[in-house]
Simulated scan of single mutants.
Amino acid sequence: MAQVLIQNVQAQDVPVENSQVASTQRVISLAPHITEMLFAIGAGEQVVAVDDASDYPIAANDLPKVANYRSLNMEQILALQPDLVVAWGNAQQQMVQPLEQLGITVFYSAPATFAKLTDELQQLGQLTGHQQQARAVANDYQQQITQLEQDYRDASPVTVFYQIASTPLMSANGSTWMGQAVDLCGGVNIMADSPAPYPQVNAEQVLAQNPQVIVAADIAELAHWQQWPTMDAVAQDKLLTIDANLLHRFTPRTPVGIRQLCLQLDKVRATH
Rank of each mutant, 00 (worst) to 15 (best):
D266C: 08
A181P: 08
P82D: 11
G129P: 12
V234T: 03
P111E: 03
Q123S: 09
P255T: 01
P211F: 10
Y198L: 09
Q123W: 08
G129A: 12
E75K: 13
A233S: 03
V188T: 06
P197Y: 11
L102G: 09
I58T: 12
E149Y: 04
T176Q: 03
V160Y: 07
Q93C: 03
Y108R: 03
D243E: 13
P111W: 02
V182C: 01
V137N: 08
K238V: 05
V9I: 12
K238Q: 15
Q20A: 12
Q76E: 15
P82E: 12
H272M: 14
G129F: 15
Q92T: 01
R153E: 10
I242D: 07
L80N: 09
L127H: 09
D55S: 07
Q92D: 01
H272K: 13
Y152E: 01
D266H: 06
L38G: 13
Q126E: 11
S109W: 02
D51Y: 11
V215F: 01
A67Y: 02
M95F: 09
S194K: 14
A233H: 00
T113D: 02
A22V: 15
P32V: 02
T128R: 14
S29H: 02
A67V: 02
E36H: 03
V268S: 00
M170I: 08
M1D: 11
D218S: 13
E120P: 00
Q142W: 05
V86A: 01
L124A: 11
H33A: 00
A49I: 10
D266K: 04
Q132H: 12
V14L: 11
A53M: 14
W88N: 00
L265H: 00
I104N: 10
L72F: 05
H248C: 09
D237A: 15
D243T: 10
Q46H: 15
Q212K: 07
A136Q: 15
N189C: 04
L99V: 11
Q163G: 08
V16A: 14
D154E: 15
T113Q: 02
S194Q: 15
D266V: 06
Q131G: 09
Q132L: 09
I77W: 03
V4A: 14
L72T: 02
R259C: 06
V96H: 05
Q133M: 14
N202C: 11
Q236R: 06
T176S: 09
Q236E: 11
L222I: 04
Q236T: 13
G125D: 08
Y69F: 10
A59S: 13
Q180A: 06
K116E: 14
T159A: 07
Q236M: 11
E120I: 05
